[in-house]
């Protein structure tokens, strides 16, 4: 932990269910960045998922339950930070779930005011410029929809990435077009989703980059899975992995680990 003179501010990490299960490295990289920025990171145990699957399926009752749980879990943290524009965007939807005279509405508004996606937090809120990363390579950046259009995340990750000396950013065509993930959409409308992700991997490959980077694991799993199926060599990583200098581990879908140790 840091040795600053004033006690560090405690932030609550919203892990996100995909990072928790599929790629813990993303959550650890987020922790590392927050610590580099001088914060003390705490991980409330009562968190699960942001509730988006229920919200987008029209199940508002379940969404409200999850929202109340998340609001309580993150009560008292100055900031709530997560490595996903989509999940943090969902936290920003919480106030819509409660009637004006419901006391939870004010609590939801309060959470919304404290909840930030990691790259926008580092740039817009704390003006962080201490990126330490020896990553080398040509990347291209996919702007995930919720982050881009609900939270205005566009230049923040690019600004932070520009601090990495060995990194070259080759923008792809249609970087802002949806990759076709869309949560349950990719399973319910598999054929359409497939067309959208094929368009996206094509553009990514055409950019000449060797690593595809983005800020949302749902999209990244989708695009990595498609790149693998297409037999393309491109690596896929979450932006925080590059920013935290944590790119030693295998890229998404590339993992090669020893099962024997654990199972």
């Amino acid at each position: 932990m840091s040795d600053t003179h004033t006690p560090p501010i405690k932030v609550g990490l919203f892990v996100t269910c995909l990072a928790d299960m599929f790629r813990p490295e993303v959550a650890f990289a987020t922790v590392k960045l927050l610590e580099q920025a001088g914060f003390l990171v705490d991980v409330p145990k009562a968190q699960t998922c942001c509730g988006q699957p229920a919200f987008n399926s029209g199940d508002n009752e379940s969404t409200r339950k999850i929202a109340r749980q998340t609001i309580e879990a993150f009560d008292g943290y100055r900031y709530v930070i997560g490595p996903s524009g989509s999940c943090i965007g969902m936290l920003h939807h919480y106030p819509e779930l409660f009637a004006d005279d419901d006391p939870w509405k004010a609590r939801a508004e309060d959470l919304k005011a404290r909840a930030f996606e990691i790259t926008s937090f580092l740039v817009d809120e704390v003006d962080f410029s201490g990126i330490q990363s020896d990553f080398k390579g040509k990347i291209t950046y996919h702007d995930s929809c919720s982050g881009l259009r609900e939270l205005g995340i566009k230049q923040q990750p690019r600004q932070l990435l520009s601090e990495i000396d060995g990194l070259e950013l080759n923008e792809m065509q249609e970087a802002e077009t949806c990759c076709g993930f869309g949560g349950t959409f990719c399973v319910k409308y598999a054929d359409i989703s497939n067309r959208m992700v094929s368009n996206k991997t094509g553009f990514a490959a055409d950019s000449g980059a060797d690593t595809l980077v983005g800020g949302d694991l749902g999209c990244l799993l989708n695009m990595a899975g498609k790149l693998k199926r297409e037999g393309r060599e491109m690596e896929v990583r979450h932006v925080v992995e590059l920013l935290a200098g944590m790119t030693d581990s295998a890229a998404i879908g590339d993992a090669d680990y020893d099962l024997g140790q654990e199972l």
């Binding site: 928790d20 599929f22 497939n194 799993l221 989708n222 990595a224 498609k226 879908g253 993992a255």
Partner: peptide, 11 residues
């Protein structure tokens, strides 16, 4: 249509 990346370790 695509492969499914698997978890890289414990949660």
């Amino acid at each position: 249509h695509r492969d499914m990346p698997t978890p890289t370790g414990k949660t």
